[in-house]
């Protein structure tokens, strides 16, 4: 089963600007300007991999998750950005 893990929290400096949040990723030196649901998503992820169902369930406490496919697309974007590791 595919699992998703976030990079260690200490690697990310986060500054909320308005609707956007600026993330500085220490391991890469790259700045990401992100909007909801990315900060929420990073909040519910852990350094140990979680399955898609578990992530959706945790996120449901914050806002409505319409479908898991859309969630997977968002997660894969974070994988490409290097902030999330897929296992």
């Amino acid at each position: 089963m595919t699992g998703y893990a976030r990079v260690p929290a200490a690697e990310i400096v986060s500054v909320a600007l308005d609707d956007f949040t600026a993330l500085y990723h220490r391991a890469s030196g790259i700045t990401h300007l992100v909007t909801s649901p990315v900060p929420e998503l990073l909040d519910v992820l852990e350094e140990a991999p979680l399955g898609l169902g578990e992530i959706a369930a945790r996120l449901a406490a914050v806002f409505e998750v319409e479908d898991e496919d859309a969630l997977a697309v968002r997660l894969d974007e974070l994988v490409a950005a290097g902030l999330v590791v897929r296992t």
């Binding site: 600007l17 609707d19 956007f20 030196g29 700045t31 300007l33």
Partner: peptide, 22 residues
């Protein structure tokens, strides 16, 4: 101007933002 717009405009107005890192 919203903070996020200021942020984007200033990164675009900086030639060494990336090179300076944190």
């Amino acid at each position: 101007v919203a903070p996020s717009e200021v942020f984007v405009r200033l990164t675009q107005a900086s030639t060494n933002y990336t090179a300076l890192g944190e």
